[in-house]
Design a protein around this nucleic acid. Structure first.
Lengths: 163, 163
DNA sequence: CTTTTGCCCATCAGATTCCATTGGCTCCCA
DNA sequence: TGGGAGCCAATGGAATCTGATGGGCAAAAG
């Protein structure tokens, strides 16, 4: 049983080389749960325009749940779902400075431009464009405030990425 | 099984660097229940203008209850709720002097200014602005008296934070 | 040969840690 | 029962460390 879980949030910048620092607290959880310095990054599900990030430990958990749902793993639906889940999750290595490099595809599907909003989900964490995150319809006021205060603390505009 | 629970109350000051001593009795419970010197601090729910503090043991309990409520953890509502619960709960480390650092966001949403009223809730404890706590409509006389006696003992005003 | 990918070092600000001081409380002994 | 020594919690300030980020060089790919 892994004792560490993802909690909290964070805001970091994407640099000119598409590099992105993963918040240190998330990195600590990552290395605790899975010794390989790898993060799986996949597009968000259920209509969420974001990226999902998780460790190999949670990948195994996803596979276990998948197998539970399909008694017959040889049917077309099972193949389709595996292709979607595991085919779109790309392993990213974390460099010595704690950064990963976002691929153009992942940036495109997530709408991420100059900055990334990290939001924990206990067993995984999500990566959002900060402005897209706070513009979600029905987002609780608290979360909108969290994004806005972080943006303000860095002198970033509240209405959208700088041109 | 953790044998310790949060009981009682306390009043402490926030210093110029937003540092705040956690009452020693609560710290003892914390380290008994969870070996990592970490406190999760989240905004209060159900319209309570305060902060909730708890250990990783209770965080796991929250996650268990969440999973119970959603048979399908892949639906949008489940993602939204996890982002709200686990994204808003920030892990705070406790320094050697028993202090945590309150972020501006947490101070803002809780209305905490110069002092903090700690109030135990058995598996967690709450952090209030003392004057907001005692101004709650319908607060039992006993609790109001507890706050007032602590305020008086420190020479603090009963009607609101000093300017 | 040009472009990309990965690795290493520098820097700066913010966060964490350490140390000193204060004040109240307890316990012990005269 | 009245000091007084000692202890511990809380607090203030300073030093140290780490995280985030930018730039440069080298290896690999097209």
């Amino acid at each position: 049983m892994s004792a560490a879980f993802y909690l909290g949030y964070g805001l970091n910048a994407v640099d000119a080389k598409n590099r992105l620092s993963v918040p240190a607290s998330f990195r600590d959880v990552l290395t605790t749960r899975a010794p390989d310095r790898q993060v799986m990054v996949a597009p968000g599900h259920a209509g969420r325009r974001c990226l999902m990030a998780f460790d190999s430990h949670y990948a195994a958990e996803l596979h276990r749940r998948h197998a539970e749902r399909f008694s017959d793993t040889g049917v077309a639906a099972a193949y389709d779902e595996r292709a979607y889940i595991f085919g779109s999750a790309q392993p990213h290595s974390i460099d010595d400075a704690g950064r990963i490099v976002l691929s153009p595809v992942l940036r495109r599907v997530s709408g991420i431009t100059s900055h990334v909003w990290f939001s924990a989900g206990y067993e995984y964490f999500e990566l959002w464009d900060p402005w897209a995150f706070k513009a979600q319809p029905g987002l609780p006021e608290l979360q909108r405030l969290q994004v806005e205060m972080e943006l303000e603390a860095r002198g970033l505009p509240l209405d959208g990425p700088a041109a």
